[in-house]
Design a protein around this nucleic acid. Structure first.
Lengths: 128, 128, 128, 128
DNA sequence: GTGGTCTAGACCACG
DNA sequence: GTGGTCTAGACCACC
């Protein structure tokens, strides 16, 4: 059984529900959560991570709206099998990539180094 | 003469001072602002972008603390010539890249596609 | 119960947020604020000291960036338990000590006198 | 002949005239400037350090008011031979020492370490 | 001229 | 409840 590890930094400026959302997205990419897999219930997740259930609920809803998971009253939350990527979402990703590459470039990272880092990250994420 | 274009979205959830900071970082990466170049004065930038001077000041101070620019009492703000990248900063960049690549992968982008996008972005940013 | 006493001089040249920052640092060293202790909320501190909440917020953020306190969205600000002293910070402290000892020496204080003053100050700060 | 080395950081938050004042104080303590020695003229200093003459003048006046130097229309500025330390000045020094020792203590420096640093600094400054 | 500080009060996001 | 953001305008220090 694969294990989903959630790390939250309470003193970070990033809102907790965003951190939780990010950790789950990364968990999916790494294959710790496969399409069709169930996520812990809101209450279970809240208990495990010692945060408020409302906060978990907010993260789950965000993930649902982004298309990463599906929420079913009977079966709880499961990882989506198909993802329909919206135009708006694509633009957001592109902007974020632009910013991060800008920062890398200013700080002296060469194109090759950036590409290598990206490739390594991608490869580390298991095919699912 | 190079032109610095600043686009701010007043209805965005991202704080204005962060947006401004991001736009300037991107401006530096694209070579619209070269090392040693002066930024508009706080008041000028405030007028141009129709935001409050304190908001501009906050963005400039953030950029100063991150090492992107230097603020000189006599000549205002200029783009830094040397960038000292801290270990903490490197980790932040790495985490952000990890998240964004995770999202790309889940949404079906192949490793090659991501690499191509990164390379194109990097190449678009002029050497100055 | 320990009491945190904040004294601000409105007519001083030292900015209020710096004075507040200094008073809190001294409060921590004297044990009036122990690691893990909560600081008053931004608004409470503003009311107590009769200054603006943004000024308090600026002081708290400075302390956070320096590693003295942690700011948690849920519980407000608390005194840090571990302090990670940076190389840059060490250099700053050293420069300040150099200047102050230079002044003492020029004004005729002997090495022994300075050492005694330092020891007394240190001893006065309670272990908690 | 002893040499007076002045290092100014234009992008520092510390005002230039304060930096200059500090550097001269340290120069006196280290014996690079002995009691009775002449300081460079305002114009000379301004030229050497590439700052405005008004800024140099401000620093010299501050040093005069603090009793470190004497200014004579005929002979220019010279290092004072006797220093009369005021009560107010003593208090300022004490407050500064308190703050700096507080920071050292919070950051884990032991009493002995602080004392050793002070002693080393003091010893490095030549008897004059 | 430059940036820095502070205020008073409003609004918002987070939990 | 908490802190964060932004404004508009005033005042100040520095150079």
């Amino acid at each position: 059984m694969r294990i989903l590890l959630i790390e939250l930094d309470m003193s970070s400026e990033t809102p907790i529900y965003i951190q939780l959302r990010n950790q789950i997205v990364i968990g999916i990419a790494y294959g710790n959560l496969a399409p069709g897999d169930s996520l812990p219930t809101v209450r279970q997740m809240a208990q495990d991570t010692e945060i408020n259930a409302m906060t978990v609920s907010k993260a789950y809803n965000l993930l649902k709206n982004e298309g990463f998971i599906e929420i079913d009253r009977r079966h709880g939350a499961t990882v989506s099998k198909n993802s329909n990527i919206s135009e708006e979402y694509k633009n957001r990703i592109y902007s974020e990539l632009e910013l991060i590459i800008a920062e890398c470039k200013i700080n002296g990272l060469s194109k090759n180094k950036i590409v290598t880092i990206c490739e390594n990250l991608y490869t580390k994420m298991n095919k699912v």
